[in-house]
Each structure stands twice: as C-alpha cells, then as structure tokens.
Computed example of a mutant assay.
Amino acid sequence: MSVSLYYCASRAAPLTDAEMAAVERIAAARMSSFPYQDEESLHLYHNGGSEPDEIVAGVTKMPFGPGRVLPVVAHTLDSVTYLRRALPGAEWRVHMDDLDVPWDEDEGYVLPGMRDADLMAEPGGL
C-alpha cells in the first residue's frame, strides 16, 4: 500500500509571471537538493488546472524504506513551505492521504518528530 503527500494552492487570481518564475525556481532548487536520486521528490503536476482557482498542485509518493520516509517527508514539506511563502493570498491544502498537515507561521509545514535526528537516521547511513 502506497502513501502519498498531496499539496495544492487555490486563489481567485492566477499566477503572475513573477510567481510562475518563483515556483519554477523553487521546484528546481528543491529537486536538485533532494537526498535520494531513486525516490520521488517534489512533483508539481500542473500550475493552474482542473479545479476552479487552483494555481499549484502536486503529489509525492512516499518511499517504502522506513529509513527514508522522514527525510523525504521533511524535504517535501520544506519545499511546499517555500512555495506557500512565495504565493501570498493562496489557500493551501497539504495532506498525507487522510491526514491534514498543519501550518505553523514560524516553521511552515511540519509533522511531529519529522526533524528528530534519531528517527531520520537510515540504517547504514545515506
């Protein structure tokens, strides 16, 4: 059974050219810093599309290896945090299957324990 992290932003105004460039810049930077070449990272499947007022949407499939789940979750949620901060006025929904991921003004999107070094340590190292 697969678990995925879903993220989408909506607002009445479409992305400006500057915002589109910011989304592309953030996505490229975050994908290049992703720790695992063989796992799925931030995946934006469209900018503005099927849902009314949707301006950004994406999904990241979580890895099966238990030592990789928290690093992938942390990296992806950090990426979505950067995106949210670059798109003022958007309404965001971030969830892992049926679990909504809370927003914190200081930390962004976080789940309990996702930055715990002991929990994130993969057997045998990266």
Score class of each variant (00 low, 15 high):
N47V: 13
D98M: 06
Y6K: 02
A27V: 13
V23Y: 01
V56Y: 00
T60Q: 03
G58S: 08
I26M: 09
S79F: 05
V73R: 01
T81M: 10
T16R: 04
M114F: 07
P102H: 05
E107H: 10
P14M: 04
C8E: 03
D100K: 12
S10Y: 05
V3A: 14
G48N: 01
S4I: 06
L70K: 04
I26C: 02
P112S: 11
G108C: 11
A117G: 05
L83M: 12
Y36G: 05
S41T: 11
V23W: 00
A121D: 11
P71Q: 08
P102E: 09
S50A: 15
D38N: 07
M20Y: 00
L42V: 14
L15A: 10
G113N: 15
A13I: 05
L119I: 05
M62G: 05
P63F: 07
Y45A: 08
G48V: 03
A12N: 04
R84T: 07
E24H: 08
M96H: 07
E122M: 03
A28I: 06
D38R: 05
S2V: 08
D53E: 09
S4H: 13
S41Q: 10
L99A: 10
A27Y: 06
L15D: 01
R25Q: 15
A57M: 14
D53Q: 10
P123S: 11
A74D: 04
E24T: 08
R84E: 12
P112T: 11
G67E: 03
A28F: 15
P14C: 04
P66V: 13
H43I: 05
S33V: 10
A74I: 03
V94R: 00
M62D: 07
S10L: 04
A28R: 12
S33L: 08
H95Y: 12
L87D: 08
T16K: 06
A18T: 14
Y6D: 02
P102L: 12
M114C: 12
D118P: 02
P102C: 08
V56E: 00
V80N: 01
T16L: 07
R84G: 02
T16V: 06
V80R: 00
A18V: 11
H46L: 03
E39M: 07
I55C: 00
R25D: 14
Y109N: 04
L44F: 09
T60Y: 00
D104M: 09
E54H: 06
A28S: 14
A121N: 11
T76K: 01
E122T: 07
P88Y: 14
R115S: 06
V23E: 04
D78V: 13
A121T: 13
L83E: 01
D104N: 13
M114E: 11
G124R: 09
P52Q: 09
D98T: 12
A57G: 09
R93C: 13
V73M: 15
E91R: 05
L70R: 04
A27K: 02
D100L: 11
Y109K: 04
S50Y: 08
D106E: 15
